[in-house]
């Protein structure tokens, strides 16, 4: 077995090694029930990262996901009473719309996605502030439980968030692997001029990729909103960089065309293990941020597959 063949397996090997290390340091980390609840806690971040994977897979980036999630928490809270469970449809459509506009601005107006998605995020923030009147809003508890109570809770020891996460992962995997859309994404990520030359409608595919990213961000926002029982223009703050980190650590480089949604699942778990580990090995709160950065550098150095990158920029 040579190095080239095990390279693609580095991300999950890193995950396994990290989990074992923490388990040795503190065996209570590996108790299944606590592991399950740790994983369940990170599901909204995972969904956000899942969407972001599509943007990064084509060599772009989506910096609007955090603000989209913020906006959706407000939309969900404001319109829950009026529309009931179908407010979810409105939320996802809003995410799709913002994502599609980001994609349009990037590909038709030639604004780099780094700036276009950031700007769309500002617009989403404005919408959130306007709808919420710049206050923190609270959901009616009975309405919330009646419409979205199924999102949280346990069945036979399995948290419902986990079921949702697995379902969305399967959906994203299907999109990426089994549809022409997914194939087109890979073609664009690997080499855009070649994709254009072979007659692919590159712009349509890229707009769709950003729309998918927006829709997933909206689902994440909806989960935040139900979980915290409210909406606020700042509710999801702090998740953007973590979502990017989850995608990158999983082994989907910013150059595109390599990696994918399964990698993101592994990457999110790595982020979770690192963060949980600091609690389990009792690192003080002020030191956690720095240690997180250092471990992150090690994790990235271990997981990224450099054979597909000619130049490291």
């Amino acid at each position: 077995m040579n190095l080239e063949r095990i390279k693609p397996h580095f991300p999950w090997l890193t995950l396994l090694a990290l989990a074992l290390l923490v388990g040795i340091a503190n065996p209570s980390f590996l108790v299944p029930s606590s592991l399950l609840s740790l994983v369940a806690d990170i599901v909204p971040l995972f969904i956000m990262a899942l969407g972001m994977t599509f943007a990064i897979y084509i060599g772009g980036i989506d910096l609007s996901v955090q603000q989209l999630a913020n906006m959706v928490t407000v939309i969900a809270t404001v319109y829950l009473a009026q529309f009931g469970a179908s407010v979810a449809v409105i939320c996802i459509l809003a995410g799709l719309l913002f994502g599609a506009v980001s994609g349009y601005v990037t590909n038709r107006l030639y604004v780099p996605s780094f700036v276009s998605t950031l700007a769309m995020g500002f617009i989403a923030l404005s919408v959130a502030k306007y709808l919420s009147g710049q206050r923190a809003l609270y959901m009616d508890a009975t309405l919330r439980d009646a419409n979205f109570g199924w999102m949280f809770g346990n069945t036979a020891g399995v948290p419902h968030e986990l079921v949702i996460a697995v379902f969305l992962l399967a959906l994203a995997w299907f999109l990426q692997k089994k549809t022409t859309f997914g194939r087109a994404l890979k073609a664009i990520g690997s080499g855009e001029p070649a994709a254009v030359a072979s007659g692919l409608n590159v712009v349509r595919v890229k707009v769709l990729a950003f729309a998918v990213s927006g829709a997933f961000a909206a689902i994440a926002g909806l989960m935040f909103s139900v979980k915290l029982s409210g909406g606020d223009a700042n509710l999801a703050n702090g998740f953007l960089l973590l979502a990017i980190v989850a995608v990158l650590v999983g082994g989907t480089p910013l150059t595109g065309g390599v990696g994918g949604v399964i990698n993101t699942a592994v990457g999110t778990l790595i982020v979770m293990v690192i963060r949980a580990a600091m609690v389990y090995v009792e690192i003080s709160a002020t030191q956690q941020q720095m240690i997180f950065g250092v471990v992150l550098i090690i994790a990235i150095a271990l997981t990224i597959d450099r054979s597909k990158m000619q130049i490291v920029k």
Binding site: L241, L248, L254, I297, I300, K313
Partner: peptide
Amino acid sequence: VHIWLKIPSFMASLAMGFVGTGLALI
């Protein structure tokens, strides 16, 4: 970090940013 570990600057500097903020916090 970017050059020796051959990590793309986006990721290397993002992680170094975390380290910096963490250091300031300590």
